[in-house]
Computed example of a mutant assay.
Amino acid sequence: MRHLLLALPFALLPLVAAQAHEHDHDEHAHDSLGAHEHGVASLNVALDGNLLELQLESPAMNLVGFEHAAKSEADKAKVAATKRELEQPIGLFALASGDCETREVELESPLFGDADHEHEHEHEHEHEHEHEHHEHEGEHSDIQAFYRFECASSAKLQQLDLSELFKRFPATEKIQVQLIGPNGQQGMQLTPAQPRLSF
């Protein structure tokens, strides 16, 4: 990954995950987003001084409600609305307490881009989704969002609150979070009932 802050420290996190869940790498891979499990997203968080980086990865189904290329006006409107929401991350992650300003936003998904390419795989995607779900995750549409913030009052940033994200995207049932902050590394699963993670 091209973002240094996330690339270096998160290389160590499979060890943390293995310790936390006592799973081997195969089991961890099954639990991770690599399995493209609907309802489940992953979030990497790195807080270093005043710099906060977040990397969210989710099946498009969780955020948009479908994974096919947007052809109808209703589908296109839904994709556009989801993209607008993801482009306003301060509210989604409740970062106001840290006096954070968004410095960088990167959104990536087949749904946001090359519709012709997505169309080529649509029928195959529908078939694979039903019969060989885990073996062909490349046929599924994911949404990836990367955010970089500068937080003037990072010491006041006590927690990450994903309540608003769960509220706006109710198909998201749980988010696997891996965090590196002032107190070291930690991992946990957040849900609508337990949406907060302390730094």
Rank of each mutant, 00 (worst) to 15 (best):
Leu95Met: 05
Ala29Leu: 06
Ser141Ala: 13
Ala74Tyr: 04
Leu15Trp: 03
Ala29Val: 04
Ala145Ser: 09
Leu8Val: 07
Glu132Cys: 14
His136Met: 12
Phe166Glu: 00
His3Glu: 12
Pro14Gln: 15
His123Asn: 15
His133Gln: 14
Ser97Pro: 05
Arg168Ser: 04
Glu22Phe: 12
Glu135Gln: 11
Asn62Arg: 09
Val105Pro: 02
Phe199Thr: 06
Ala7Ile: 07
Phe169Pro: 00
Ile143Asn: 06
Leu4Glu: 10
Glu137Pro: 15
Gly49Glu: 07
Met1Tyr: 05
Ser58Met: 10
Pro110Val: 10
His134Ala: 12
Glu122Tyr: 13
Arg148Met: 06
His30Tyr: 15
Pro14Met: 11
Ala80Val: 02
Phe149Thr: 05
Gln176Ser: 13
His21Ile: 09
Phe166Leu: 00
Glu135Leu: 15
Gln176Met: 11
Leu43His: 04
Ile143Phe: 07
Glu173Gln: 15
Glu106Met: 11
Leu160Met: 08
Ser72Trp: 08
Leu12Val: 06
Ala20Trp: 04
Phe166Ser: 01
His131Met: 14
Ala29Tyr: 07
Ala152Tyr: 03
Asn183Leu: 01
Phe66Gln: 13
Ser97Tyr: 02
Phe146His: 09
Glu126Trp: 11
Leu157Trp: 01
Val79Trp: 08
Gln88Gly: 05
Leu111Phe: 07
Phe112Ser: 06
Gln19Leu: 11
His68Tyr: 12
Leu5Phe: 04
Glu101Thr: 05
Phe93Leu: 08
Ala7Gly: 11
Ala46Val: 06
Asp24Arg: 12
Val79Met: 14
Glu120Pro: 06
Ile90Lys: 03
Val64Tyr: 00
Ala115Lys: 13
His36Ile: 13
Glu87Val: 03
Glu22Asp: 13
Glu132Met: 07
Gly49Arg: 06
Glu173Met: 11
Glu173Tyr: 09
Phe166Ile: 00
Glu130Phe: 10
Asp114Trp: 09
Gln55Asp: 09
Glu135Gly: 14
Phe66Pro: 00
Gly138Thr: 12
Ala18Ser: 11
Leu107Phe: 03
Glu132Trp: 13
Val16Glu: 05
Leu54Cys: 02
His123Arg: 14
Leu179Gln: 00
Val177Glu: 11
His140Val: 02
His3Cys: 11
Glu53Leu: 10
Ala81Pro: 02
Lys174Thr: 01
Phe166Met: 00
Glu150Gly: 05
Asp48Trp: 08
Leu56Val: 05
Gly39Thr: 14
Gly184Tyr: 00
Ala7His: 08
Glu139Phe: 13
Glu67Leu: 12
His123Val: 13
Asp114Arg: 13
Phe66Thr: 13
Leu179Lys: 00
Leu15Gly: 02
